[in-house]
Write a protein that binds this DNA or RNA. Structure first.
Lengths: 203, 203
DNA sequence: TTGCTTGTGAGACTTTAGTCTATTAACTGA
DNA sequence: TCAGTTAATAGACTAAAGTCTCACAAGCAA
């Protein structure tokens, strides 16, 4: 896949690395929108065409740079036997929010870029968005198995609502903090077991 | 506020109307990204500067055009006495989704544009996003008053999660249909009253 | 070594957003 | 009627994205 079929000049990996470093540096320094592709190439000491040989857009490059640099971004939530799923979810969300806040503007710009490029949108969703979604869906299924979440609830829908909540906050410049993590978790898990007034309601 | 203080040539309202009509037509015909400001001005038979005199960006113009043309976009949810809030919410969401689907790509582009312009983002949020959010929050408060939603739930958080869910679907190119409306509503309202297994869970 | 293939560097070129300026048009108040 | 004011038009100008071409570099295999 990544291997080249026959001969030819090999791609210079140092150029790729320099471009990613330069992109990350400039974007964090000046903000995504203020950084031109020409400026990234110039700081990397590389021709503009070399950048286009590897990435289609600034968004592709920056996305790769951000997620290479921040590593796993947010690890699989811990699911130790003795930890309640609601605690694991809250910790996971706090962890995610910390990472999101670090490159918040950049991530907003990447989501924006995904709206004008179907290919990039699909790639972004498959490689970045979906894996995180699956982590939370898995956690919710686990919670159902353990009886921490009622069996009639819909883990996929809840996962969509959780992700939606922080995307919505992200894009509308709301706070992404421990409070949000707690409020989301509470809304998902706290009821009905702890609600004493668990009775038929309305007529 | 809108009145001019003294004399001077009055702004040509026909030009504004022509620009909005042209913008809407071209955007729906060719897609937001493919339409240049110059093309809109040309179709409207107006100088480019005239457009810039009224709107800062293409996003400002198109947003105004879309929401002027689609009128109220989604009316306040009906809250008749005899209608359960969960029914009202589902109907409201179906209504919203119908409108969103009509100009879906355009709306995604507008949200994207909001990410690169703080002023536009604030304006978009205040004039368009927030009013819809308040409608749902109000509906949820009403549901609590009527006892259709447990009092310990957090209407603001639920509203964020509902909006988030369809923003997330919208931006990730998922379906916005009656099924989603039903699933969201079910996740919010269906439990715990209708869940027979409403017992303390997990030790 | 020689040809083939692919990457790189440099720069030309097109298109568009956005700014700016000069000229003309339309209206107000004296 | 005339001065003041604001809008409209036309076009120049800059900055950037993206495409393209060409010469050159660096590997491959015969």
């Amino acid at each position: 896949m990544t291997k080249k079929v026959s001969g030819g000049r090999p791609t210079d990996e140092r150029a790729s690395a320099a471009l990613k470093t330069a992109a990350l540096h400039l974007v964090r320094e000046n903000g995504y929108e203020k950084v031109s592709i020409a400026a990234i190439a110039k700081e990397a000491g590389v021709a503009r065409q070399t950048l286009y040989n590897r990435w289609n857009t600034k968004a592709d490059l920056v996305l790769e740079a951000v997620f290479e640099q921040t590593g796993n971004y947010a690890a699989q939530p811990a699911l130790e036997e003795d930890k309640r799923c609601r605690v694991a979810l809250e910790e996971f969300l706090i962890n995610v929010f910390e990472h999101l806040n670090k490159d918040r503007d950049t991530l907003c710009s990447i989501i924006a870029a995904a709206q004008k490029d179907v290919t990039f949108n699909a790639s972004f969703y498959t490689h970045f968005v979906l894996p995180r979604e699956k982590m939370i869906t898995a956690l919710l299924h686990r919670a159902q198995e353990r009886g921490e979440l009622l069996p009639d609830r819909n883990p996929e829908m809840i996962s969509t609502m959780i992700h939606g909540a922080f995307w919505y906050r992200l894009l509308n410049r709301g706070a992404l903090d421990a409070r949000l993590a707690k409020d989301i978790t509470t809304e998902i898990f706290e009821r009905p077991p702890t609600s004493p007034e668990c009775v038929a309601v309305g007529s």
